[in-house]
Nucleic acid binder design. Structure first.
Lengths: 255, 255
DNA sequence: AAGTGGTCTAGACCACTAG
DNA sequence: TAGTGGTCTAGACCACTTC
């Protein structure tokens, strides 16, 4: 069959852009809409090819990009699955504090406060909501190697997290992004971070056991899901006396 | 022709791993060895397919990964080129300081000192050289919007940069990584960064016009080329009063 | 018109997982 | 043994660049 003679396909694939992009968009929509939930398998490549009326190679190209993006996960012989945020996957995808020697460390989290309020101007701008919209504010203290090292101030749009209580929040046995996903169907796709150096003061200094004037690394992170929707604002203050923020650029594997 | 009946191919492709990985390794080797220089075109996909004795689709898969890695660059209708570090490509790939409002800014660079010396223990460890090996130390002051904001202390293994003088270094009209590439054939593939918060003191404070005790963001970066070879150690100290370090994780494009 | 990369097809066989 | 993803082929046509 020549490449141009496409057979009839149930879902309308609007022309103008490559088929694999159409397929990719449909798959992404399916995940975002919860048609396939985190950890579940999507249909086999052969089924998808039949469903969309395209060759299996086109399906593979679409799935490839979603695997690269982190939305899907392939397991040879088993199937293709929606990525689940358990198993510490995003733990280290989005947590970049390591020991000064580069050793990874799992933080121990304690929730210091959990309150409801209304968005101020900065929060509203970061979360793409209107001012005075309801938000949830959480303060966590993270310890590494038994010492308090990080203070996290988290702001969530309350509308996205109905029924979230301190009890539910602290009872989670996994990362916060896993909670987002398992309870609210929110997949964090990417984060945007801005880092500054500041000086310790007030309650933050006290929580970290530091004198006023000690240097702190401040990380202002916005977590983003499908359709560029911000779902979380998190301001972290890190004592970098014995831990550092670690980061690599470029996907170059050795030859 | 069935998939298993491969025709004779001049370069021996060792079995055991996928053909496209073999091809990828050969292409990477060619770039690393300078067979095709930065900005030059590699052979066409059809030529490569004939040369390696594989299908064009296999070549495409190998090239795809090198394009994703940033080593190669495709231009439809023209060819596939070795990425050149001019045109500010790596400028913003590896320079992450932006205005507090997120606006990109081009730094103005002034070289404050250029000296030769011998590696101390920390430099030797970071650059994978032996202690007391010859190094070049450069101190740059970077200004954004007319104000000194960053002090860079750069350490280079002298063996990798023969004949590098302050005159050559400061005469460059482009980024330092472009100089690495154009004069020494060194392609920076990736960087490893560790960030801490520190306090301003001594000459750094003076260069930035800050009082002692002001908070500074310290970035310790190692630049890495093929075969995981470190080629540069750079310690940057950034005044984040009106600029921030910006960073995103996750390649998620909107649906 | 010729040459390049970009998309897509149809089908083969291999490697892994499960019943 | 059946079903899944992983690799690879051979060839078609399209879109872009250059002459």
């Amino acid at each position: 069959m020549p490449a141009t003679a496409r057979s009839a396909r149930p879902p309308v694939l609007t022309p103008g852009r490559p088929l694999y992009e159409e397929v990719r968009a449909h798959l992404t929509e399916g995940v975002a809409a919860g048609r396939w939930k985190a950890g579940e398998a999507i249909p086999s490549e052969a089924d998808l090819a039949a469903h969309f009326g395209v060759a299996i190679g086109t399906i593979r190209k679409a799935v490839d990009s979603l695997v690269a993006q982190g939305t899907l996960l392939r397991r040879q012989g088993k199937g293709t699955f929606v990525t689940a945020h358990d198993g510490r996957r995003l733990m280290f995808h989005f947590f970049h504090i390591v020991g000064a020697d580069g050793a990874k460390a799992y933080p121990e989290v304690r929730t210091a406060s959990f309150e409801r309020g209304r968005a101020d101007a900065a929060e509203a701008a970061a979360l793409a909501i209107v001012r005075d919209e309801r938000v949830i504010r959480i303060r966590n203290v993270l310890s590494l190697d038994g010492r308090a090292v990080i203070v996290d101030d988290i702001t969530l749009p309350a509308a996205l997290f109905p029924g979230l209580t301190e009890r539910i929040f602290t009872a989670r046995d996994n990362t916060i992004y896993h909670l987002f996903q398992s309870r609210y169907g929110i997949n964090v796709l990417r984060t945007d971070e801005r880092l500054r150096a500041t000086l310790a003061s007030g309650p933050t200094a006290a929580l970290l056991g530091l004198p006023a004037g000690a240097p702190l690394l401040e990380i202002r992170r916005v977590a983003i899901t499908f359709r560029d929707r911000p779902v979380e604002l998190r301001v972290s203050r890190v004592n970098t006396a014995s831990h550092v923020y670690h980061n690599t650029f470029g996907k170059g594997e050795a030859i």
